[in-house]
């Protein structure tokens, strides 16, 4: 079983993409869970969301304390939220940042695999403005998910709510995030 912990701020869509990830994993034939941590919810406050992915049925209903992958959607949470806490030593830390891996290693003290991507820039260039979708792409790549499955799920889920034009921008953002993290295998 793989466990993922997302760190974002209220309004950045970490919870939304954690749920889309669960649907992508279901397409792969996996058993899944996705759940956010609920506190006093407000825009801009730190929020966490979690995924569990397994080949067998998932029966555990407790929180996630030692994830295999930690995803930081907002770099300003690096110090306050301590995303490396509990992260498995051989796990993967994925950060939306303009910093280098070495700088992130220094800031977090994490000794495992670090993936950095400038998801803000990707989102800006794609014209979506939200870093969550490129980060979802990065996580899918690290998990070794086939691009086609990730794309299909995004199109199906977001296609219901978005115009064709906005959907294509999101697919491009997902793809750029996926490409940025491709080749790093830590998920399975």
């Amino acid at each position: 079983m793989k466990e993922i912990r997302w760190h974002g701020r209220g309004g950045q869509g970490a919870k939304t993409v954690s749920q889309i990830l669960a649907q992508i994993n279901l397409r792969e034939g996996k058993h899944v869970q996705a759940f956010p941590e609920y506190g006093p919810e407000r825009s801009g406050a730190p929020v966490r969301a979690y995924n569990r992915i397994a080949d067998e049925e998932i029966v555990i209903h407790s929180g996630v304390y030692s994830p295999d992958i930690a995803v930081v959607v907002d770099e300003t949470l690096l110090e306050s939220e301590k995303p490396a806490d509990g992260l498995k030593p051989d796990g993967v830390l994925i950060v939306n940042t303009t910093c280098s891996k070495d700088e992130i290693r220094k800031r977090t003290g994490f000794r495992g695999t670090i993936v950095v991507l400038d998801a803000d820039r990707i989102a800006r260039e794609a014209g979506t403005g939200f870093a969550n979708v490129p980060m979802l792409g990065a996580v899918a790549a690290v998990l070794g998910t086939e691009w086609k499955l990730a794309e299909e799920e995004l199109r199906e889920t977001m296609g219901e709510k978005l115009s064709h034009e906005v959907l294509e921008k999101n697919v491009a953002a997902l793809r750029a995030g996926y490409e940025a993290a491709k080749g790093v295998r830590g998920g399975r």
């Binding site: 749920q19 058993h31 899944v32 869970q33 759940f35 209903h61």
Partner: peptide
């Protein structure tokens, strides 16, 4: 929350 707000199969 544990069941109501958690996405499962």
């Amino acid at each position: 929350f544990t069941l109501t707000h958690s996405s499962q199969v």
